[in-house]
Design a protein around this nucleic acid. Structure first.
Lengths: 353, 353
DNA sequence: TTGTAAGCGTTATCAC
DNA sequence: GTGATAACGCTTACAA
């Protein structure tokens, strides 16, 4: 067993096994000898990038077909110094993340790219035993990087390092003006949901969440302004888990005078915690209080009553990220206003509101 | 723009942009010239696989360090005909899947492998517009494949095709004797949960689910046998969604004579649907009926009451898959009894039982 | 103990 | 129109 001990930033030793080799595939040379022409002619015939007599071209293509020829990505990458892998940095196993990755992968695959996962947290409970993701990225040199914001991906420090290595990247759901990001349009999503509540006849519509989250609040205030209603913020402590925090808050809420008849919650988790708390207090949803979540997780559909919620446009977010990355890889200059984009959400009306 | 139109099985055209090249990295040759030795000596010094004088070795390593040398995976792959990518085929954005992938990736990365995602379903609602995953795999030739069972990955047909191309693979959660699989130990998980219910003093413990699912039922019957209780199967129709099916069944259940005091459900989704239905009937959980789910999804913790459930050992399943794949890649002969493995679950006691 | 050299499968620059 | 041929960065058999 031999180790690459000379890679100091890589915490792992990489054992080189006696590995099984991949079975040989047809190469350009195989086609060339089979057709009795040169390898250069073959590429020309296959790639349409030079002159080659039509009958010969047909013959070459038929032969390529017959041999099941596939261009070797490896050889191509070596020669052209281009990678065809896009790395995704992620920190937790969230269904919403995976849905975004699915959209990203779909779009990138259409362009011959492959998506690889870099799960940057260690085993749950032992998170620190792995190298920082940027080191890994700098090591593997993907064509581009899509990152979920996380504890050990520092937008300030890591972004520039990637940029310096000229690796294009986007970050999901970050509002930092300095970094290119694809985000779900939370202001618009909340606005739409609150307008819906208004159309249902609610006069006292509150927002339940942490005041530090400006994006959703912005949409809330916009909608309340449009409706001509006075906003009411039900502020949640940030220290407790969102579920428990909201559940406990329900007791306070239940005793409120002139209590709101409708609540837009920060997230499905918050909404579900609040729902649990309300039911414990004997407050009925939606009869006494209409409740809207945000995210459209599986859990939202499985609540009782099933939760009305704002669905994240996961697939579209992933696709937008792919488009940005492809453009950056191709060296396209950024559009006026920068690369960042917000993708509209969709209100999913179920039974809670 | 030029297209690889000669790849007939690949539905996508692969456009070749004018891509930005990766910035040049230090190579073995750079180190060699910097040290005034041959390239061969450099590899020997770095890889410990031959004799090289200690001072020279130190000098070479220092230089490698200084230049930030990283071996090129591309070049290595080309030369050794080995891939260092493991493909994961998946079909839907499920949090449980991603958690398994995380464990897999963690273990594989430690061995210098990279995990890439092949999301084999198209955009939700337009699933058929993409090539069959096996074709993609045969094209990309990963070192190995880990697949989630899905509609277009046929164990009968696709497995052999991979095998024939000598691409090692495992499938998650499949009990087919012919295919190597890592599965969560559902019989044991259900058994443990039902024994727990027994220890809580329940005498009438039912299983709620579809009779076709033998694995969990097996554990249920084992536990009931051990407890000396008579099993009772509450069979769910397979045609409705699991949530709705279970919710609707609750009405029937509520009117049952001598109705069970405890229910082990097929999944969290089933349990949550049943819970919703019970609450609609005025049946209290856990006071009137104790309820246990399976999967330990986020949704389980966010139910009211929070659902007691059997947690899937996602991380460990991923790791087990990695171990099998690595062993297969290394050409290790299969152990007696084959590669397949079951990984034990963990009972998460919350408030519903 | 160190060096030479031949590939791996592409791409692309020349010459015919 | 077509064909030699030289890289790309690494591995490794074979000399010295």
């Amino acid at each position: 067993m031999c180790y690459f001990t000379y890679v100091p930033t890589l915490a792992y030793k990489i054992p080189i096994h006696r590995l099984c080799e991949l079975p040989p595939m047809a190469t350009l040379k195989d086609i060339a000898t089979a057709c009795g022409v040169s390898i250069r002619t073959v590429t020309r015939a296959l790639k349409e990038n030079g002159y080659v007599a039509q009958p010969l071209k047909d013959r070459v293509r038929a032969e390529a077909q017959r041999l099941g020829y596939r261009p070797s990505r490896i050889a191509r990458s070596l020669k052209t110094r281009q990678s065809f892998e896009v790395a995704v940095v992620l920190w937790n196993a969230d269904e919403l993340h995976l849905a975004k990755i699915a959209g990203l992968e779909h779009a990138l695959r259409a362009h011959g790219y492959t998506v690889n996962i870099l799960y940057a947290s260690g085993r749950p409970g032992a998170e620190d035993d792995i190298p920082a993701p940027v080191e890994e990225l700098l090591h593997h040199r993907p064509a581009a990087v899509a990152a979920f914001a996380g504890p050990r991906f520092d937008k300030q420090a890591d972004g520039p390092r990637l940029e310096e290595a000229s690796i294009p990247f986007v970050v999901f759901d970050v509002y930092d003006p300095g970094v290119d990001s694809v985000r779900v349009d939370r202001p618009q999503g909340v606005r739409e949901a609150v307008l819906y509540l208004g159309r249902q006849g609610h006069q006292r519509i509150a927002y339940l969440g942490c005041a530090a989250d400006v994006n959703r609040l912005q949409g809330y205030h916009a909608a309340m302004g449009e409706l001509g209603l006075v906003p009411q913020l039900l502020e949640l402590p940030d220290d407790r888990g969102r579920f428990d925090g909201a559940r406990e808050f329900a007791a306070t809420f239940a005793r409120l005078e002139d209590r709101p008849t409708a609540v837009q919650a920060y997230s499905d988790e918050t909404a579900l915690g609040f729902l649990a708390g309300l039911q414990a207090q004997g407050v009925r949803v939606p009869e006494d209080v209409a409740l809207v979540g945000f995210d459209n997780r599986m859990a939202a559909g499985w609540a009782s009553p099933p939760l009305t919620t704002v669905a994240q446009p996961n697939w579209e977010v992933g696709q937008a990220a792919a488009e940005i990355l492809l453009a950056k890889i191709a060296g396209t200059p950024p559009p006026a206003g920068g690369w960042s984009r917000s993708v509209p959400t969709r209100l999913v009306v179920r039974e809670s509101a």
